[in-house]
Design a protein around this nucleic acid. Structure first.
Length: 669
RNA sequence: GGGCCCGUAGCUCAAACGGAUAGAGCAUCGGAUUUCUAAUCCGAGGGUUGCAGGUUCGAUUCCUGCCGGGCCUACCA
């Protein structure tokens, strides 16, 4: 409703200006929020119109104010120096719509969206970096679904890469385990932890003797051959680790629909199909001389600019140098005929948009407790299966280090003539999670002098250096459990554990979402384990408080807002919201009205942090309100109804917004 | 060498398109009527937004240069 009103206002302002100044190009009308509610609910800066209209901002603002007439939902407008038009919402109108949960009809774009996230190498346990990825991705899916979009969730599995090869080398050549022995190990509870340690040992082992690295290459090649014994061992290991990842993420309510694996991209020859199309379209060219002689290469993005600059440089030497050095080229197929990672990724993304002319086979792989099935790629697969791929839009949640590679894939699609697909290809890029030096020491790692001097230490799977996802969750739950135990000793053990788990998830998900996505998170246990201040539990607690009011009042919280809204006349709402000293409560209603507006902003900017901020602000306003206005003891019955309706609306919006972040609220805290 | 990102309070972070007095949380200090209320609330201190220019009515935000930090830049995946 808030968004709707804002849009209508901008539209009407534009019409006013166009009517008074026909033929003049009017700059876009921007709507902001005034620094204080007393000034109004929307602020329109008039400065940008001054020049094109050849008039003073205050005069223009005054003209709009007199011309604009009445707008449903807008109460009044004021001209404010040095050049703002401040607009006040009709508070009773807005409150009545919000309480009744009225939603303006909106057109939801059709077309399925594919969100790819997690994509953890299946060779070791998931760590905090993977948690950030999965939580960002899962939250973005929830936001899209909130907005009415249809979404498939994919988790790409690189089960034939060097990282898996390394662990295979570890089992076969360091531990000298037989296949049955490995099979037995995969059945132990946290097999991924075992691999975590082994992976670190393998990395060290490579350094002790260069000969050992030969084994790595041999193993890598053997894995790509589906029929080899080594490939079957690799599959055994990677599948077991993958299951562990799904279990870990399920603890956070993160689910997937489909797991495409690199092995099928290989065995179903996706690359061959893509290669033909890329050659035919001239996207790839064969180099006959220079540094990249014998390779199929793609011109790098940004080459056009370099070319036009070169045209001005008369020297042939420069051009010659560039061609020979191959600086402007990206090798896709190596001179030995094998295709690199980017090539396979291009093929995979052609499949995503339904442009490859091939499909995976599908098998059921994992059933969640809620009976939702997660499918996995197969060469053959089951007859009856849902259809994945062939979507209208994609979002790839991948950290910032892959920007270059993502751009190459996107440009390949564009060069193939699929400009529309390229336009709907979004790399949802985000920064790394690193450890503070203090945190690293807490984990028992001894740091070099150089490392101690740095502001942070990177997580490294190769060194076995990092915070494992399950460990962090365990610690969060234990910490929350201690609090719940002391606050609610009368509750049964399973109930207390359930509450502690909800709090732990709330804390973790909020923690990962409160930072804007491009910022590097310096991980610290003190901040991550905090349940106070700007945290998930703070917002959960606000809802719990709201719930307890209704419990004590003997009123159903879910229906209260609507029923009270019907009982309260708009005159009642007006009295409670527009009289003197009602700004504080109005601010609360206003914030509550913004949930879907904020969610749309989050989607448009691929920035979930805005929602975290919004939730915190709403919870903060509620806590202040809660503290200041006793409700159950309110003697005036109409006033009490209004206050209860206020609580009901805020509670509902908080639950919704938290739900969009994947956070649920316990009955008590 | 080239490309991208970052530098804001003691610490961790905000500030949509350039907008009104740069905001939160943590930490520190001082307070909160036995109430629906303490995983909370109120208050205090804390800032030359890395430095120097430029663009304009107005710059934390845009441009240029410098200083400091990170990432990418392989016939690795």
């Amino acid at each position: 409703m808030y968004r709707h009103l804002e849009h209508r206002l901008a539209q009407r302002v534009l019409e006013c200006l166009e009517k008074r100044h026909p033929g003049v190009l009017i700059p876009p009308v921007v709507i902001e929020q005034p620094p204080k509610v007393e000034l109004g609910d929307f602020a329109i800066p008039i400065f940008p119109f001054a020049k094109p209209l050849r008039s003073a901002p205050l005069k223009i603002a005054e003209a709009i104010r007199t011309d604009i007439g009445t707008i449903e939902g807008i109460a009044e407008m004021q001209v404010a120096p040095p050049g703002y038009l401040n607009v006040k919402i009709d508070r009773a109108w807005m409150a009545s719509a919000l309480a009744a949960d009225k939603k303006p009809s909106t057109v939801v774009p059709s077309g399925k969206i594919l969100v790819e996230h997690s994509s953890i190498n299946p060779n070791k346990a998931a760590h905090i970096g993977h948690l950030r990825n999965a939580i960002l991705g899962d939250t973005f899916v929830r936001l899209l679904r909130y907005a009415g979009r249809e979404v498939d969730i994919q988790n790409y599995i690189d089960n034939t890469g060097v990282q898996v090869a390394d662990v295979v080398v570890g089992f076969m050549h360091i531990e000298k385990k037989s296949r049955p022995e490995i099979e037995a190990l995969t059945r132990q509870p946290r097999f991924d932890y075992y691999c975590w340690d082994l992976y670190a040992r393998v990395s060290q082992w490579y350094e002790t003797d260069k000969q050992n690295q030969q084994l790595r290459l041999q193993t890598l090649h053997a894995i790509e051959d589906a029929n080899s014994e080594i490939a079957s061992v690799a599959d055994l290991i990677s599948t077991a680790v993958l299951r562990r990842h799904l279990e870990t993420m399920d603890r956070l309510d993160i689910e997937y629909d489909f797991l495409p694996r690199e092995s099928e991209i290989l065995h179903l020859h996706f690359w061959n199909a893509a290669f033909e199309k890329l050659k035919a379209a001239g996207v790839l060219t064969f180099e006959t001389e220079g540094k990249n002689k014998g390779c199929w290469v793609m011109r790098r993005a940004g080459t056009e600019k370099a070319e036009s600059e070169e045209a001005h440089r008369s020297s042939d030497d420069v051009e010659e140098f560039d061609r020979v050095s191959g600086e402007d080229q990206k090798v896709i197929v190596r001179s030995n005929g094998t295709v690199g990672y980017v090539g396979k990724d291009i093929a995979y993304h052609m499949w995503k948009f339904g442009l490859l002319g091939r499909d995976f086979g599908y098998n059921k792989f994992y059933r969640y407790p809620n009976r939702h099935d997660c499918w996995i790629s197969a060469t053959d697969g089951e007859k009856d299966h849902p259809h994945f791929g062939n979507v209208a839009e994609i979002y790839n949640v991948i950290d910032v280090r892959q920007s270059e590679a993502q751009n190459t894939v996107k440009e390949a699609l564009r060069d193939l003539g699929h400009g529309e697909a390229a336009d709907h290809f979004t790399h949802f890029s985000y920064g790394m999670v690193v450890l503070t030096p203090r945190c690293a020491e807490e984990l028992g790692y001894s740091l070099s002098e150089e490392e101690k001097a740095r502001s942070f230490i990177g997580v490294s799977g190769r060194k076995g250096f990092g915070v494992k996802a399950d460990d962090l969750l365990d610690e969060l739950i234990a910490s929350a459990k201690k609090e719940v135990d002391s606050r609610h000793p009368q509750l049964a053990e399973p109930e207390r554990l359930g509450i502690a788990t909800q709090i732990a998830i709330g804390a973790l998900r909020y923690f990962m979402l409160k930072y804007t996505k491009q910022s590097v998170i310096a991980f610290d246990f003190k901040d991550a384990l905090s349940f106070e201040g700007e945290t998930g539990p703070y917002a959960q607690y606000a809802v719990v408080r709201a719930t307890s009011i209704f419990r004590k009042a003997g009123v159903d919280a879910e229906t209260c807002a609507i029923e009270d809204a019907q009982r309260l006349s708009s005159a009642d709402l007006a009295t409670n919201l527009t009289a003197e000293d009602t700004n504080e409560i109005w601010e609360l209603w206003l914030a509550a009205s913004k949930t879907s507006y904020v969610i749309n902003q989050c989607i448009a900017t691929t920035e979930p942090a805005y929602l975290a901020k919004h939730i915190f602000q709403l919870a903060q306003l509620f806590n202040t309100f809660y503290h200041r206005y006793p409700i159950l003891s309110e003697p005036d019955e109409k006033r009490k109804q209004f206050l209860l309706a206020t609580v009901a609306v805020v509670r509902r919006e908080l639950i919704r917004a938290l739900g969009a972040m994947g956070i649920t609220v316990p009955p008590v805290m």
